[in-house]
């Protein structure tokens, strides 16, 4: 069995602060301070997020429950496994090109829009040039954003989802040591 955070209290605190800033300042990559050991299919950055946010009160849906990923996560966090994407508090997407449609995750309820799935998507990389142009809360003017390896219709799906705000899903994308967030409020601009 692999280890988790070497210093659980402070490593998760530092990771959380980056996640919070990432969510507060969408589309801008931030470096995660600690990369814990992770089983084969799980990126260390995704592992850092799961260790920071998951416990027995959360249900995780794994796109590819391969190898010992599940046992490892269960052992270190006590999280529950969601049988379907809709029941998940968090979903880990390890093969984004084959990810299910965004509609298959919980979008929340109008009275409680927070009851939605948060996605953690492992991608090849992202950069703030070319790609789509986004704006919204947390973005001073606008940002260009290119995320590698997403399904062709990802941005169309994402735009369709924005119609039902405040329902929606919030996403973290991870690549190497970096994380980038795309909350439901981030709007796609015409370009």
């Amino acid at each position: 069995m692999l280890a988790a955070f070497a210093n659980p209290v402070f490593d998760s605190q530092r990771t959380f602060r980056e996640l919070l800033q990432a969510m507060a300042r969408p589309a801008v990559p931030r470096a995660l301070p600690v990369l814990p050991p992770a089983p084969e299919s799980v990126a260390p950055a995704a592992m850092a997020i799961l260790l920071t946010l998951c416990d027995a009160a959360t249900a995780l849906w794994l796109q590819q429950p391969v190898g010992n990923a599940l046992e490892h996560l269960r052992f270190h966090t006590g999280l529950r496994v969601a049988q379907t994407a809709k029941e998940a508090d968090f979903a880990l997407i390890t093969a984004p090109d084959a990810m299910p449609s965004l509609q298959s995750f919980a979008q929340g309820e109008l009275r409680y829009p927070d009851r939605s799935t948060s996605l953690i998507v492992q991608v090849q990389g992202f950069r703030n040039e070319a790609g789509v142009c986004v704006a919204g809360p947390g973005i001073r003017d606008q940002e260009m954003l290119h995320i590698e390896g997403l399904p062709a219709d990802f941005w169309t799906q994402r735009a369709a989802l924005a119609e039902s705000f405040p329902l929606g899903i919030d996403m973290f994308f991870v690549a190497e040591q970096h994380v980038l967030a795309l909350p439901r409020t981030t709007r796609l601009l015409e370009h």
């Binding site: 996640l19 919070l20 946010l53 829009p113 927070d114 948060s118 409020t185």
Partner: peptide, 12 residues
């Protein structure tokens, strides 16, 4: 609390 804070930021 941290999970709630992230949702709060995501739905201003």
């Amino acid at each position: 609390l941290r999970r709630a804070l992230l949702k709060a930021v995501a739905i201003p």
